[in-house]
């Protein structure tokens, strides 16, 4: 699809109230926003993979934090900005300075996906965590300690579908203390927001 066709498809999707390219807020988004507001986060807060920008907007409105939302998907960045969220296009934490962030929020793509069935569009980027479900969570956990300010916190959403214990173990191996901030059970999965601190 050319940029022009893409932009015309976006316009059509928007007019019909559909969002074919950008993950829209769901239970997991609600739980992450709740955890961030209750914690509460403050200072400079980054939401990685902000999607529609809804979580960042909630945190911006309900805390005194300054919030920045990033996404690899340009359509998501545009939607987040339209919500009044300061947006940047980025791959995980790569363009952030060492020790610059007081909190990092992440509702990662976490569905375990058979590589033969990957569908290669922006929605796959938003949902698929690769074969293990942790293909983005692992590199995130390996780098997030670098960008956190002293006393900073990471709020990471984890699904039971993703391998809860494996995520906790990876975080602990990176030197984090892991606590459960909020947890909810749904028919097909249990969602937990983990609070990681150093």
């Amino acid at each position: 699809m050319t940029d022009e066709e893409q932009s015309s498809a976006d316009g059509l999707a928007d007019r019909r109230g559909m969002n074919v390219h950008v993950y829209q807020p769901a239970e997991d988004s609600g739980l992450l926003a709740q955890a961030a507001v209750e914690y509460p986060v403050s200072g400079t807060v980054l939401e990685v993979g902000t999607g529609s920008g809804w979580v960042s907007q909630q945190v911006q409105e309900k805390t005194d934090a300054r919030v920045v939302g990033t996404d690899i998907n340009p359509h998501a960045c545009r939607q987040a900005r339209e919500r009044g969220v300061e947006a940047a296009r980025a791959n995980l934490l790569t363009p952030f300075r060492d020790g610059s962030l007081d909190a990092v929020l992440f509702n990662p793509p976490y569905l375990p996906t058979d590589p033969d069935n990957e569908w290669d569009d922006w929605m796959e980027h938003a949902l698929s965590g690769g074969k293990s479900g942790r293909e983005l969570i692992d590199p995130f956990l390996d780098d997030v300690g670098r960008v956190l300010a002293p006393d900073g916190v990471v709020l990471l959403l984890v699904s039971s579908l993703t391998g809860f214990d494996a995520v906790v173990k990876r975080a602990e191996s990176q030197g984090f203390t892991v606590e459960t901030a909020v947890q909810e059970s749904y028919p097909f999965e249990t969602l937990t927001v983990l609070a990681l601190s150093e």
Partner: peptide, 12 residues
Amino acid sequence: EDGIPNLLPPDM
């Protein structure tokens, strides 16, 4: 562009 910095490395 349009208020959004693109901080992806060139190959992405």
